[in-house]
């Protein structure tokens, strides 16, 4: 699904990623943990195609080079990024935006666009699964949403857009335990043998609910250790300092 080899990325001449290697197969869920400033969010940004980074190395998605593909095309090809800090967009109605986005992606995939009635039915169902108040979706996109609501809205978008590869950038941060469980349930319900996930987190807490196949530790722009769920448990006990 995703092959990352010796991926380097700098911004304003400062190197943040210093050679990252990860290989994600269809159906796998990988977790990336790491201390503040280790480059976790940069990795998420670079995978989504955000402007402003000097990127080198190999980045292949479904066997094809991704580095020069623009952000929107990556999304259309099935890459989804759940933001750590979802952007507030005043004046843009959440429902209208979700429908525009879904139909744009469907169109790019050669699928039939969804009509308003089916869309409303689907969004009602999926927002209920996440315990979201439907009224929220007639509000402006992320404007005045609480931290938890914003994160749930990201997971809702993931469920609607149905990506092949979902990157979750600290989706657990700022969530209370109930919201965390709901979000984890949301993720688990979309897992299947064809879909892959890259979950970026600070804490093992989320991984108790979303069981990863692999755990990687990112420190100072490099993966310094990879392993299974036990690695996350070890980190929780010893901290990042105990890794080396």
């Amino acid at each position: 699904m995703l092959e990352i080899k010796n991926l380097k990325a700098s911004i304003n001449n400062k190197e943040i990623l210093k050679g990252v290697d990860i290989s994600i197969q269809p159906g796998e869920l990988h977790a990336i943990m790491g201390p503040n400033g280790s480059g976790k969010s940069t990795l998420a940004n670079v995978l989504s195609g955000k402007d402003g980074y000097e990127v080198s190395g190999e980045l292949k998605y479904q066997g094809k080079d991704l580095i020069n593909i623009p952000i929107d095309e990556r999304a259309q090809k099935g890459i989804f990024l759940a933001f750590q800090y979802p952007t507030e967009i005043p004046g843009v109605n959440t429902n209208n935006f979700l429908k525009t986005s879904l139909n744009k992606i469907k169109k790019a995939r050669g699928e039939k666009e969804m009509d308003t009635l089916s869309f409303i039915k689907m969004i009602k169902e999926k927002s209920n699964e996440l315990g979201m108040n439907e009224n929220m979706l007639s509000r402006q996109l992320n404007v005045g949403f609480s931290g938890g609501e914003k994160k749930k809205n990201e997971i809702l978008q993931m469920k609607i857009l149905n990506p092949n590869l979902a990157i979750l950038d600290e989706t657990d941060s700022g969530l209370d335990i109930d919201a965390l469980k709901t979000v984890a349930k949301g993720v688990n319900s979309t897992r299947d043998k064809n879909k892959s996930f890259l979950v970026i987190t600070h804490y093992q807490r989320l991984l108790n609910y979303i069981k990863p196949d692999f755990v990687h530790v990112l420190a100072d722009g490099k993966i310094i250790k990879s392993g299974s769920m036990e690695l996350a448990e070890q980190l929780e006990k010893t901290g990042y300092k105990g890794i080396n």
Partner: peptide, 23 residues
Amino acid sequence: SIYYLMTRGLSKNESVKLLINGF
């Protein structure tokens, strides 16, 4: 905001128009 909308599959031009409309 443009970045956010583009990660949802909208082109840059579409994102800008949506934002203008919202504004």
